[in-house]
């Protein structure tokens, strides 16, 4: 009985691991096969062929797409963190009237369906002359990251003991100095986690990127991959699509594995605390 349940448990572990990993394994496998090889199903690598990885950069500006994604996500993270560290200090450490209603509003914004702002955002981006530009996407993606970074950093800020700023207050430090000298160093780990999660959000964003860009050179990675086609109507573009998928997924997986603990903490921060 005991043995049986042990076997059952390990079987479960195995099945879950296979289910989680197989699609990515199969994408890597498919990306290393080309031409007519893709017309047959293989479960193990036979001959490793890197031509898809070259083709994806030759057939379309995929390098530019990656650069666009990095520029957009990087700027979005920097701006969101800069704004939300200040806001989180105010929300987390200072009692002022209207604080909870503001926090609730920000929480509400984080649950906005993106499509609800689509036409208004389109009009705004166009009137700023930002249609089909990276700044337009940065502006739009801030809507997705900023409410969320404010919330997480506020949660972290609250958890720090009160004594931390008391000494500084007694010495007559201004709030600006307190934020810079006392909280900024303490917030660094939380800011890394939050920034990473915001980066993932912006890196994965599709609806805005699809709607607010027009030319392939300005696209970020998700619409570039979604709209990828073969060199002819009869060619299966799956080899190159899988190569592109592997290229953009590997760095994210690496980041996630390195920052595993922090990400789990960030995702669950506030969500389960009683």
């Amino acid at each position: 009985m005991k043995l049986l349940s042990r076997i059952g448990f390990w079987l479960l572990v195995l099945v879950i691991a296979l289910f989680a990993l197989f699609p990515f394994y199969y994408a890597v496998l498919s990306s290393l096969r080309s031409g007519s090889e893709l017309f047959s199903v293989a479960y193990w690598p036979e001959r490793l062929d890197g031509s898809n990885y070259i083709a994806v950069f030759q057939r379309q500006p995929f390098g530019q797409n990656i650069l666009n994604s990095i520029l957009v996500a990087g700027t979005v993270v920097a701006l969101s963190l800069a704004l939300s560290v200040l806001a989180a200090y105010a929300f987390g450490r200072i009692a002022f009237r209207g604080r909870s209603i503001l926090l609730m509003t920000i929480l509400g914004v984080s649950m906005f369906p993106q499509v609800a702002v689509l036409s208004g955002m389109f009009e705004m981006i166009r009137s700023f002359g930002l249609y089909n530009t990276l700044p337009g996407l940065i502006l739009a993606n801030m809507m997705l990251t900023l409410p969320f970074t404010v919330w997480v950093l506020t949660t972290f800020m609250r958890e720090l003991p009160k004594e931390i700023e008391e000494a500084a207050l007694v010495d007559g430090a201004t709030p600006a100095i307190i934020v810079r000298r006392v909280f900024l160093p303490l917030m660094a780990p939380a800011a890394v986690t939050t920034g990473l999660l915001a980066f993932v959000v912006s890196w994965n964003e599709f609806l805005f990127a699809l709607t607010f860009t027009l030319t392939n050179e300005r696209r970020t990675v998700p619409p570039a991959i979604a709209l990828m086609t073969g060199s002819s109507a009869y060619e299966l573009p799956w080899g190159t699509i899988m190569a592109a998928s592997v290229i953009v997924t590997l760095p994210i997986i690496a980041l996630v594995l390195v920052f595993q603990r922090r990400i789990v903490a960030g995702l669950t921060a506030g969500a389960v605390k009683g």
């Binding site: 699609p23 990515f24 994965n204 991959i225 979604a226 998928s245 996630v256």
Partner: peptide, 15 residues
């Protein structure tokens, strides 16, 4: 189990 979560939605849809 974090890996499926980390893969961009568009990429997982394509996979």
């Amino acid at each position: 189990i974090l890996i499926p979560w980390a893969i961009p939605t568009v990429v997982s849809a394509k996979m």
